[in-house]
Design a protein around this nucleic acid. Structure first.
Lengths: 132, 132
DNA sequence: TAACCCAGTCTCAGATAGAGACTTTGAGAC
DNA sequence: GTCTCAAAGTCTCTATCTGAGACTGGGTTA
């Protein structure tokens, strides 16, 4: 059984179990961490703990608003730890929890696939655009 | 070197290479297929080819508009093949391309992580909500 | 004295997603 | 003959989400 069949089998199980989006693990999780920024932030934090402004410098095209929001969601999901030092000005350090670090494995698989096949996707995209 | 370190190392490479979002493979790909519906559709198509309305029945809470849009994006990226039979009414069948099937591996990793850790995430979420 | 940094919050405009009506032609029910 | 449904979408309207950028307030630097 290859990965594709295994994936299909899992999908059929969800169907059979009549899982709605809130109870299906994949949907419940990927609806939240499957957005543009969450995965990128997890990559950035995989290097090591970072402060708010450091993250913003690493990923300049995220707005502060989305940076705050995404970090709060990741914190609520237990993937990221938020450590506030009560200094003035406050110093806030974000780091991956053990759960967050355990997510690095699957994420790395995705990243490696992306690196391997990005060229092919780009080519298909440009062909499609030309045909349109 | 564990997966977390490897992920961090990759992130630092992207930083060093000054990759903007359009040239970074991970961002270029995951910005598109990392949305709510793309991964779910790939799971659905992993079972086998499906027609438009069959997909809509399998995933009732996607609107026809987003279903069309998501399938077109996946087609443009070369992950999904769209086969139009010029009958009346037209019969359109969607299936995974070899590239799409190759994505099943990393996606399966993600799915398995989600199944394993969903309970932990749910618990953290509810604790966070209670504290708020 | 002025400017800048910390970690955000706030507001406003623009982009995006969802709900659901509508299309055209053929097949089956009555 | 007519009624209704299904195919695979498109269209419009509204609700939600996102991004840009101004603002906060006290301390440090020039």
């Amino acid at each position: 059984m290859d990965a594709c069949e295994a994936l299909g089998a899992k999908f059929e199980l969800w169907q059979a179990a009549d899982l709605d989006s809130s109870r299906c693990p994949v949907r419940g999780l990927l609806d939240q961490i499957g957005d543009r920024w969450s995965t990128l932030l997890i990559c950035a934090l995989a290097v090591g703990p970072r402060r708010f402004s450091a993250l913003h410098r690493l990923i300049p095209d995220i707005s502060k608003r989305m940076l705050t929001q995404t970090l709060r969601t990741l914190e609520a999901d237990g993937l990221v730890h938020r450590d506030v030092q009560p200094t003035v000005p406050p110093s806030v350090t974000y780091s991956l929890t053990p759960l967050g670090r355990s997510f690095a494995g699957p994420l790395l698989g995705l990243v490696e696939w992306a690196e391997t096949h990005f060229a092919a996707v780009l080519q298909t995209r440009s062909e499609t655009k030309r045909a349109a």
